[in-house]
Design a protein around this nucleic acid. Structure first.
Lengths: 236, 236
DNA sequence: CGTCTGGTTGATCTAGATCAACAGGAGTGG
DNA sequence: CCACTCCTGTTGATCTAGATCAACCAGACG
């Protein structure tokens, strides 16, 4: 229930990184009047795998995790979405049900935009469609790359790579000017995201720590040598 | 240099499964006059990874393999494209260079459509854009699924799965009415496609054979029990 | 207090990679 | 015709990353 809830799209900090930057003022006003912003607590969900897609979600702040159920029924985290990202747009475009579950990972403000609204905007402004196309292309590439990586790279590499991605989004400098990262997700989720067992992640973290690259205490990570980590990353 | 080379888009057998089915007769006539059909020998390439994207390719017949170079410089087969499939459209849409190399795997007839032509058609007919969007969405999903599979499934499962995909496209019934498949690619390529070493593939094939599911002689595969194979496939 | 959940650690197991030798064509050249 | 190399595939022996199983620990929470 933060003040952000009352903010308009015009004032939205993250708008310029979203699809909606294709809209003109008039269209933005329409969107602004009709969008449904809402604050969510951690642990709640936006939608479930299999649900009909009634519209799309646009993240203003916070973090949501996208999970998918495998055949055996265990859900695994497949991706994270932060501020400025649009969620559920592929199901919307495909006019199909959601292929995954979107779960709030930390307190978040998310705007919901009804299916009909999006459709209207799409008809009015072809540029918006192009933005969505761009986004889809990026997604396809990302999955293509990740597929490639998961066969080629070792767990350790993927772990370091994930840490860097998270650092970009959540990293800070502490009072001593050292780079620190407060992990937003559990080790189990890290394991799922990387495609490894929790035990292996635990050991892998231990190894990274032993090498002096970083220090892990609970969910706090202190990097002793960020450059060294970056150098160890595969070309990608 | 088959007769197909002179055929028009109107007579194209595979048109209905391509993006171009969105075109009306007038647009199709334009495309027909300006497209550049060509017959390729096996071993030649349509374009190389890193090349600028001058247009897109539409397969009329044959088979092309899409290969990608990893950091170490070895190229691995990442997908196969058959009749009716459009190649290189994502690089075109992204206005970026090609991310992979397209190599002719068997004698093929492929039509080339210049960038400018596609752009003109896209401007004339928004439905065409939607088709491309659809295709991209499908691609994204496919990669998403494959990523999922490659972590979850065993090499054997993936091999059987690939065999079934190939059977759908190249399978036939022999004189005894038994299902047979002439493999269009080498074992090494099978290995790359599945993400395993050639040796493992060889052994895996041996195992499948020992179980009596199929018989391999060179590139010929004789299925003794197609249903049994299908039953062993993971849910996907 | 007990109970639960998330995490760590140790012991063991296994799918698959890697290394190495070898066998069957398919040319190619004498 | 044989000898040579080159290429693809098979097979065997060995190695290893990571999974699995199991015990255990530390907070959180009733």
């Amino acid at each position: 229930m933060s003040g952000k809830l009352n903010a308009t799209c015009f004032g939205c900090q993250v708008r310029h990184s979203t699809e909606w930057c294709a809209l003109n003022d008039e269209e933005l006003a329409l969107l602004d009047g009709i969008k449904i912003p809402k604050a969510y607590e951690a642990g709640t969900t936006l939608f479930h795998q299999g649900d009909d897609c009634d519209g799309i979600y646009c993240m203003s702040s916070g973090l949501v995790g996208v999970r998918r159920l495998d055949a055996a029924g265990n859900s695994t985290l497949v991706r994270l979405c932060g501020p400025g990202e649009t969620i559920g747009y592929r199901s919307f475009l495909k006019k199909s049900g959601h292929r995954s579950t979107a779960e709030i990972m930390m307190p978040s403000v998310v705007c919901f935009i009804r299916r009909t609204t999006v459709r209207t905007l799409l008809e009015q402004n072809p540029n918006l469609g192009l933005r969505f196309l761009d986004h889809t292309l990026k997604d396809a590439e990302e999955f293509e790359d990740r597929h490639f990586e998961s066969v080629t790279f070792t767990v350790r590499s993927r772990l370091l790579s994930l840490l860097m991605v998270l650092y970009e989004r959540f990293g800070q400098l502490n009072e001593n000017g050292e780079p620190v990262l407060e992990l937003p997700i559990s080790r189990q989720d890290i394991a799922a995201l990387i495609g490894a067992s929790p035990e292996t992640i635990s050991r892998s973290i231990g190894a990274v720590q032993d090498e002096g690259l970083a220090q892990f205490r609970g969910r706090k990570v202190l990097f002793h040598n960020l450059d060294a980590v970056l150098q160890q990353l595969p070309a990608a």
